Computed example of a mutant assay.
Amino acid sequence: MSIKSSDISIVIQGPIDWSVEKESLEGLTLAATRKIRGIFRDAEIIVSTWEGERYAGLVYDKIVLSPLPPAQGGAPSFTPNNVNRQIVGTRAGLSLVTRPFCLKIRSDMILDGDAFVRIFEERCKNPLSDERDVFEYPLVCNNFSSRNSASILERIPDHPLPFHPSDHFQFGWTDDVKVLWDIQLQSDEEGWYFLERAHPNRWRLHELSQYAPEQFIFLSAIRKKHSVDVHHYADDRPEVVALSDYYMNSHFVTVPDLLVPVRFPKYHTDHHFSFEWMRLNSLGITKVPSVVPSTVSRILSDIAYPFLHPIGFYKWLKKKVRRLGWI
């Protein structure tokens, strides 16, 4: 399989971000569209945003303006849930796609290369064949919000976050991207689920929705074909975690953001990279690198880890020794 630029549609979804992008000193979404055109000169670029947004100067082939859906779960002291905005905006953009392959990306992310296309060609060439499958082929997604249930359960026993692939960035066959996003909107009952119910743990007390947005999107796609019983965002029943592991590892090839490569100024910070342990296919980094790390630099980083982070290394070593039964 050899995917050309002319085979790809790119849907840039979300509000137009005019905050200054540090490298270009241009508006963030403007810089994002120019960068995409420079990398994929013959691709179809589609901007999907909201009515009333300022979009003059952006680089695109098509644009769609949708009415802005209301947020849910935004009671005082609670974080609003915007999953319906993601669904409406992405579906609108996907409705204009005409190419066989599609990239869905947020409007506040900067794409720095096309490595994800080569990854797709190498690792997603074989069709899925299990009766549980909902895609024809796996999608490539970034790992920033793709949750590793096994790693999380080692530290937070009641918070596995199953069925939680990234909703920031997906690339694959257009039909499969549409399967993921052509779903019903979240109901008010789901959006305000914990208003009159006790949360299952203390980790998402600021949110009222039954599922995290990433979970709602993927579970909704699966449920179009199969019945999947997941009680809430922290359902830790073994059968739920096992089924999640199947879908997460078969339906997605999860790539660290820095190797996609993509920049995400909103979340690529020292604070957020301290949660690498939560992510599928983690690079194990503890601060934001200035460049995409090479194989040599990653090896050197691993060697230096015990000296740079002695407490973390001690905890890791102690856990390994205990598993081996030496203490």
Rank of each mutant, 00 (worst) to 15 (best):
M1A: 13
K4N: 13
I8R: 00
I8S: 00
I12R: 04
Q13E: 11
D17S: 10
K22M: 09
K22N: 12
S24T: 15
E26V: 02
A31C: 14
A32D: 02
K35G: 08
G38H: 06
I39G: 02
F40T: 04
R41V: 09
R41W: 04
D42Q: 14
D42P: 02
A43V: 05
E44S: 10
E44Y: 07
I45K: 03
I46M: 05
V47H: 01
T49D: 04
W50G: 00
E53S: 11
E53F: 02
L58R: 06
L58M: 09
V59N: 05
K62L: 09
I63T: 08
V64N: 08
S66M: 13
A71N: 08
A71T: 13
A75P: 00
P76W: 07
F78T: 13
T79R: 14
N81Q: 06
N82F: 11
N82E: 09
V83Q: 05
R85N: 10
T90H: 00
A92I: 09
V97S: 12
T98E: 15
L103R: 01
I105M: 04
R106N: 11
I110E: 07
I110M: 12
D112A: 12
D112R: 15
G113H: 08
A115I: 01
A115N: 13
E121V: 09
E122M: 06
R123T: 10
C124D: 01
L128D: 02
D130E: 14
R132K: 15
V134E: 09
V134T: 10
Y137N: 12
N142E: 15
F144L: 13
S145W: 03
S145G: 01
A150W: 05
S151V: 04
L153S: 08
L153Y: 07
R155T: 14
P160Y: 01
P160L: 05
F169V: 07
W173V: 04
D175A: 15
D176M: 05
V177D: 06
W181Y: 15
I183V: 14
Q184E: 15
Q184W: 02
Q184P: 06
L185C: 08
Q186T: 02
E189H: 07
E190W: 06
W192S: 03
F194C: 09
F194A: 08
L195E: 14
L195K: 15
E196L: 12
E196K: 14
R197V: 11
R197P: 12
A198M: 14
H199P: 09
P200D: 06
L208C: 06
A212R: 05
A212E: 09
P213K: 03
I217W: 00
I217V: 15
R223N: 10
V228S: 03
V230Y: 03
H231M: 11
H232K: 07
D235I: 07
D235V: 07
D236P: 00
D236K: 13
R237S: 08
V240I: 12
S244E: 03
F252W: 04
T254G: 04
P256W: 00
R263E: 11
H268D: 15
H268R: 09
H271V: 08
S274T: 12
F275E: 11
W277I: 11
L280T: 01
I285A: 01
T286P: 00
V291D: 08
S297P: 01
S297V: 03
I299A: 13
L300C: 10
I303G: 02
P306H: 10
L308C: 10
I311W: 10
W316H: 13
I327P: 12
